[in-house]
Protein backbone atom coordinates (compact mmCIF):
# COMPACT_ATOMS: atom_id res chain seq x y z
CA UNK A 1 0.00 0.00 0.00
CA UNK A 2 2.74 2.33 0.87
CA UNK A 3 4.42 4.09 -1.90
CA UNK A 4 6.50 7.11 -1.25
CA UNK A 5 5.32 8.71 -4.38
CA UNK A 6 1.63 8.73 -3.91
CA UNK A 7 1.14 8.71 -0.20
CA UNK A 8 2.67 10.48 2.70
CA UNK A 9 6.32 9.68 3.02
CA UNK A 10 7.09 6.66 5.18
CA UNK A 11 3.45 6.11 6.11
CA UNK A 12 2.72 2.51 7.04
CA UNK A 13 -0.69 1.53 8.40
CA UNK A 14 0.89 -1.16 10.54
CA UNK A 15 2.89 1.40 12.45
CA UNK A 16 0.05 3.72 13.33
CA UNK A 17 -1.07 4.21 16.91
CA UNK A 18 1.58 2.07 18.56
CA UNK A 19 0.52 0.46 21.81
CA UNK A 20 3.01 2.53 23.72
CA UNK A 21 1.43 5.72 22.48
CA UNK A 22 -2.04 4.55 23.38
CA UNK A 23 -0.87 3.46 26.82
CA UNK A 24 0.66 6.88 27.47
CA UNK A 25 -2.47 8.60 26.21
CA UNK A 26 -4.66 6.59 28.59
CA UNK A 27 -2.35 6.22 31.55
CA UNK A 28 -1.97 9.93 32.10
CA UNK A 29 -5.68 10.34 32.53
CA UNK A 30 -6.83 11.23 35.96
CA UNK A 31 -9.60 8.64 36.08
CA UNK A 32 -7.14 5.89 35.22
CA UNK A 33 -4.87 6.93 38.01
CA UNK A 34 -7.73 7.31 40.48
CA UNK A 35 -9.07 3.87 39.63
CA UNK A 36 -5.72 2.19 40.07
CA UNK A 37 -5.14 4.16 43.25
CA UNK A 38 -8.45 2.94 44.59
CA UNK A 39 -7.73 -0.66 43.68
CA UNK A 40 -4.35 -0.50 45.33
CA UNK A 41 -5.66 1.24 48.42
CA UNK A 42 -8.71 -0.95 48.95
CA UNK A 43 -6.87 -3.89 50.54
CA UNK A 44 -5.21 -1.55 53.00
CA UNK A 45 -8.53 0.09 53.81
CA UNK A 46 -9.94 -3.35 54.49
CA UNK A 47 -6.94 -4.22 56.63
CA UNK A 48 -7.55 -1.12 58.70
CA UNK A 49 -11.25 -1.92 58.92
CA UNK A 50 -10.53 -5.43 60.13
CA UNK A 51 -8.03 -4.35 62.70
CA UNK A 52 -10.26 -1.56 64.01
CA UNK A 53 -13.37 -3.67 64.35
CA UNK A 54 -13.74 -6.23 67.14
CA UNK A 55 -12.64 -9.76 66.42
CA UNK A 56 -15.51 -11.86 65.11
CA UNK A 57 -17.43 -13.38 67.97
CA UNK A 58 -17.92 -16.65 66.19
CA UNK A 59 -14.50 -18.15 65.93
CA UNK A 60 -16.07 -21.21 64.40
CA UNK A 61 -17.84 -19.34 61.67
CA UNK A 62 -16.82 -20.51 58.26
CA UNK A 63 -17.98 -17.58 56.21
CA UNK A 64 -15.47 -16.05 53.89
CA UNK A 65 -15.72 -12.71 55.65
CA UNK A 66 -15.04 -14.21 59.05
CA UNK A 67 -12.09 -16.15 57.73
CA UNK A 68 -10.53 -13.07 56.13
CA UNK A 69 -8.14 -12.47 58.98
CA UNK A 70 -6.81 -16.03 58.92
CA UNK A 71 -3.95 -15.08 56.66
CA UNK A 72 -2.88 -13.39 53.49
CA UNK A 73 -4.51 -15.88 51.14
CA UNK A 74 -7.78 -15.87 53.01
CA UNK A 75 -7.72 -12.11 53.02
CA UNK A 76 -7.06 -11.93 49.32
CA UNK A 77 -9.92 -14.31 48.60
CA UNK A 78 -12.20 -12.18 50.71
CA UNK A 79 -11.09 -8.97 49.02
CA UNK A 80 -11.73 -10.47 45.62
CA UNK A 81 -15.15 -11.70 46.67
CA UNK A 82 -16.29 -8.28 47.85
CA UNK A 83 -14.94 -6.41 44.86
CA UNK A 84 -15.58 -8.78 41.96
CA UNK A 85 -19.28 -8.06 41.70
CA UNK A 86 -19.08 -4.30 41.42
CA UNK A 87 -15.73 -2.60 41.88
CA UNK A 88 -13.91 -4.68 39.30
CA UNK A 89 -16.89 -4.46 36.99
CA UNK A 90 -16.76 -0.69 37.22
CA UNK A 91 -13.01 -0.70 36.65
CA UNK A 92 -13.26 -2.91 33.59
CA UNK A 93 -16.24 -1.00 32.25
CA UNK A 94 -14.33 2.21 32.74
CA UNK A 95 -11.23 1.11 30.89
CA UNK A 96 -13.12 -0.52 28.04
CA UNK A 97 -16.11 1.77 27.85
CA UNK A 98 -14.26 5.00 28.02
CA UNK A 99 -11.60 4.30 25.49
CA UNK A 100 -13.31 5.14 22.19
CA UNK A 101 -16.19 7.22 23.50
CA UNK A 102 -13.90 9.66 25.26
CA UNK A 103 -11.92 10.20 22.07
CA UNK A 104 -15.18 10.92 20.35
CA UNK A 105 -16.20 13.36 23.02
CA UNK A 106 -12.86 15.15 22.80
CA UNK A 107 -13.14 15.18 19.00
CA UNK A 108 -9.67 13.69 18.85
CA UNK A 109 -11.13 10.56 17.30
CA UNK A 110 -11.59 12.18 13.91
CA UNK A 111 -8.02 13.39 13.78
CA UNK A 112 -6.72 9.94 14.65
CA UNK A 113 -8.88 8.46 11.90
CA UNK A 114 -7.71 11.09 9.44
CA UNK A 115 -4.06 10.63 10.45
CA UNK A 116 -4.95 8.04 9.15
CA UNK A 117 -5.13 5.24 11.65
CA UNK A 118 -7.15 2.51 9.93
CA UNK A 119 -10.37 1.89 11.79
CA UNK A 120 -9.75 -1.76 12.54
CA UNK A 121 -6.31 -0.98 13.76
CA UNK A 122 -7.50 1.86 15.94
CA UNK A 123 -10.04 -0.41 17.57
CA UNK A 124 -7.60 -3.24 17.92
CA UNK A 125 -4.97 -1.11 19.58
CA UNK A 126 -7.48 0.50 21.85
CA UNK A 127 -9.02 -2.85 22.75
CA UNK A 128 -5.64 -4.35 23.53
CA UNK A 129 -4.71 -1.45 25.76
CA UNK A 130 -8.12 -1.37 27.46
CA UNK A 131 -8.04 -5.11 28.08
CA UNK A 132 -4.51 -4.76 29.35
CA UNK A 133 -5.58 -2.09 31.79
CA UNK A 134 -8.57 -4.17 32.85
CA UNK A 135 -6.44 -7.25 33.36
CA UNK A 136 -3.98 -5.23 35.36
CA UNK A 137 -6.83 -4.01 37.54
CA UNK A 138 -8.15 -7.53 38.10
CA UNK A 139 -4.69 -8.87 38.88
CA UNK A 140 -3.38 -5.99 40.90
CA UNK A 141 -6.20 -6.00 43.41
CA UNK A 142 -5.83 -9.57 44.70
CA UNK A 143 -2.06 -9.31 44.57
CA UNK A 144 -2.10 -6.17 46.67
CA UNK A 145 -4.61 -7.86 48.96
CA UNK A 146 -2.25 -10.79 49.24
CA UNK A 147 0.55 -8.45 50.15
CA UNK A 148 -1.54 -6.45 52.62
CA UNK A 149 -3.03 -9.59 54.14
CA UNK A 150 0.32 -11.30 54.46
CA UNK A 151 1.93 -8.27 56.05
CA UNK A 152 -0.94 -7.87 58.49
CA UNK A 153 -2.20 -11.37 59.16
CA UNK A 154 0.79 -13.46 58.20
CA UNK A 155 1.49 -16.09 55.58
CA UNK A 156 -0.77 -18.81 56.88
CA UNK A 157 -2.39 -21.85 55.44
CA UNK A 158 -5.82 -21.35 53.98
CA UNK A 159 -8.98 -22.18 55.86
CA UNK A 160 -11.56 -22.94 53.29
CA UNK A 161 -14.94 -21.28 53.65
CA UNK A 162 -17.81 -23.64 54.32
CA UNK A 163 -15.96 -26.70 55.46
CA UNK A 164 -13.16 -25.11 57.45
CA UNK A 165 -10.59 -27.44 56.05
CA UNK A 166 -7.05 -26.19 56.15
CA UNK A 167 -4.95 -26.46 53.02
CA UNK A 168 -1.30 -25.61 52.82
CA UNK A 169 -0.54 -22.17 51.48
CA UNK A 170 1.76 -23.51 48.82
CA UNK A 171 -0.90 -25.92 47.63
CA UNK A 172 -3.46 -23.18 47.37
CA UNK A 173 -1.30 -20.73 45.48
CA UNK A 174 -1.99 -22.39 42.13
CA UNK A 175 -5.69 -22.39 43.04
CA UNK A 176 -5.35 -18.71 43.60
CA UNK A 177 -3.98 -18.44 40.11
CA UNK A 178 -7.12 -20.17 38.86
CA UNK A 179 -9.26 -17.73 40.80
CA UNK A 180 -7.55 -14.74 39.23
CA UNK A 181 -7.61 -16.36 35.82
CA UNK A 182 -11.32 -17.01 36.07
CA UNK A 183 -11.96 -13.50 37.34
CA UNK A 184 -10.18 -12.25 34.23
CA UNK A 185 -12.19 -14.39 31.86
CA UNK A 186 -15.48 -13.62 33.52
CA UNK A 187 -14.86 -9.88 33.24
CA UNK A 188 -14.35 -10.32 29.52
CA UNK A 189 -18.06 -10.03 28.90
CA UNK A 190 -18.21 -6.73 30.77
CA UNK A 191 -15.20 -5.52 28.81
CA UNK A 192 -16.73 -6.48 25.49
CA UNK A 193 -20.07 -4.94 26.32
CA UNK A 194 -18.49 -1.69 27.45
CA UNK A 195 -16.35 -1.66 24.34
CA UNK A 196 -19.34 -2.11 22.06
CA UNK A 197 -21.14 0.72 23.82
CA UNK A 198 -18.02 2.82 23.62
CA UNK A 199 -17.97 2.41 19.88
CA UNK A 200 -21.66 3.17 19.63
CA UNK A 201 -21.88 6.37 21.62
CA UNK A 202 -20.00 9.63 21.96
CA UNK A 203 -20.61 9.79 25.68
CA UNK A 204 -18.03 8.02 27.81
CA UNK A 205 -20.35 8.14 30.78
CA UNK A 206 -23.06 6.48 28.72
CA UNK A 207 -20.76 3.66 27.68
CA UNK A 208 -19.41 2.98 31.16
CA UNK A 209 -22.77 3.46 32.85
CA UNK A 210 -24.52 1.42 30.22
CA UNK A 211 -22.21 -1.52 30.74
CA UNK A 212 -22.45 -1.33 34.51
CA UNK A 213 -26.19 -0.88 34.22
CA UNK A 214 -26.61 -3.94 32.05
CA UNK A 215 -24.54 -5.94 34.53
CA UNK A 216 -26.85 -4.77 37.29
CA UNK A 217 -29.92 -5.66 35.24
CA UNK A 218 -28.46 -9.07 34.60
CA UNK A 219 -27.82 -9.47 38.32
CA UNK A 220 -31.41 -8.56 39.06
CA UNK A 221 -32.79 -10.92 36.44
CA UNK A 222 -30.62 -13.60 37.93
CA UNK A 223 -32.67 -13.31 41.11
CA UNK A 224 -35.88 -14.13 39.27
CA UNK A 225 -36.18 -17.83 39.80
CA UNK A 226 -39.13 -18.06 37.48
CA UNK A 227 -36.70 -17.69 34.60
CA UNK A 228 -35.41 -21.15 35.42
CA UNK A 229 -32.68 -22.44 33.24
CA UNK A 230 -32.63 -19.27 31.17
CA UNK A 231 -30.79 -17.62 34.02
CA UNK A 232 -27.80 -19.82 33.37
CA UNK A 233 -27.25 -17.86 30.20
CA UNK A 234 -27.21 -14.47 31.82
CA UNK A 235 -23.74 -13.01 31.50
CA UNK A 236 -23.31 -12.52 35.23
CA UNK A 237 -24.81 -15.81 36.38
CA UNK A 238 -21.48 -17.54 36.89
CA UNK A 239 -19.59 -14.55 38.17
CA UNK A 240 -18.98 -16.10 41.58
CA UNK A 241 -18.06 -19.53 40.26
CA UNK A 242 -14.43 -18.92 41.19
CA UNK A 243 -15.43 -19.78 44.76
CA UNK A 244 -15.43 -23.37 43.52
CA UNK A 245 -11.69 -23.15 43.20
CA UNK A 246 -11.53 -22.70 46.96
CA UNK A 247 -13.35 -25.86 47.92
CA UNK A 248 -11.51 -29.05 48.84
CA UNK A 249 -12.37 -30.70 45.58
CA UNK A 250 -11.81 -28.28 42.79
CA UNK A 251 -15.04 -28.04 40.81
CA UNK A 252 -14.54 -26.88 37.29
CA UNK A 253 -18.12 -27.13 36.10
CA UNK A 254 -19.28 -23.66 37.09
CA UNK A 255 -16.12 -22.00 35.94
CA UNK A 256 -16.19 -23.83 32.63
CA UNK A 257 -19.72 -22.72 31.98
CA UNK A 258 -18.95 -19.19 33.05
CA UNK A 259 -15.87 -19.01 30.88
CA UNK A 260 -17.70 -20.50 27.92
CA UNK A 261 -20.49 -17.98 28.27
CA UNK A 262 -18.11 -15.10 28.77
CA UNK A 263 -16.09 -15.99 25.70
CA UNK A 264 -19.29 -16.42 23.71
CA UNK A 265 -20.69 -13.05 24.59
CA UNK A 266 -17.35 -11.32 24.35
CA UNK A 267 -16.45 -12.58 20.90
CA UNK A 268 -19.81 -11.65 19.45
CA UNK A 269 -19.96 -8.27 21.13
CA UNK A 270 -16.46 -7.40 20.02
CA UNK A 271 -17.15 -8.55 16.49
CA UNK A 272 -20.26 -6.39 16.43
CA UNK A 273 -18.20 -3.50 17.78
CA UNK A 274 -15.68 -3.82 14.98
CA UNK A 275 -18.40 -4.17 12.40
CA UNK A 276 -20.27 -1.15 13.64
CA UNK A 277 -17.20 1.00 13.87
CA UNK A 278 -16.09 0.03 10.40
CA UNK A 279 -19.33 1.28 8.94
CA UNK A 280 -19.93 4.14 11.24
CA UNK A 281 -20.09 7.75 10.10
CA UNK A 282 -17.89 9.56 12.56
CA UNK A 283 -19.68 12.83 13.07
CA UNK A 284 -18.44 13.78 16.53
Amino acid sequence: MTSGLSTGAAYAPGRTLPLRVEIVRQLKRRRTLVMFGLLLALPWILVVAFSLGPAPAQQNSLRLSDLATQGGLNFAAFTLSVSASLLLVVAVALFCGDTVASEASWSSLRYLLAAPVPRDRLLRQKLVVALGFSATAVIVLPLMALLAGTVTFGWNDVRLPGTGEVIGASAVLPRFGIVIGYALVSQLVVAALAFLLSVSTDSPLGAVGGAVGLVIVSNILQAVEALGVVREFLPTFWSTAWLDALVPELDWSGMTKGAALSVTYASILIAVAFRRFRRKDVVS
Partner: peptide
Protein backbone atom coordinates in the same frame (compact mmCIF):
# COMPACT_ATOMS: atom_id res chain seq x y z
CA UNK B 1 -11.87 5.30 5.75
CA UNK B 2 -8.25 5.01 6.72
CA UNK B 3 -6.99 5.16 3.13
CA UNK B 4 -3.20 5.57 3.19
CA UNK B 5 -3.42 8.62 1.00
CA UNK B 6 -4.97 10.46 3.91
CA UNK B 7 -1.45 10.71 5.28
CA UNK B 8 -0.90 13.45 2.69
Amino acid sequence: PGAPVLSR
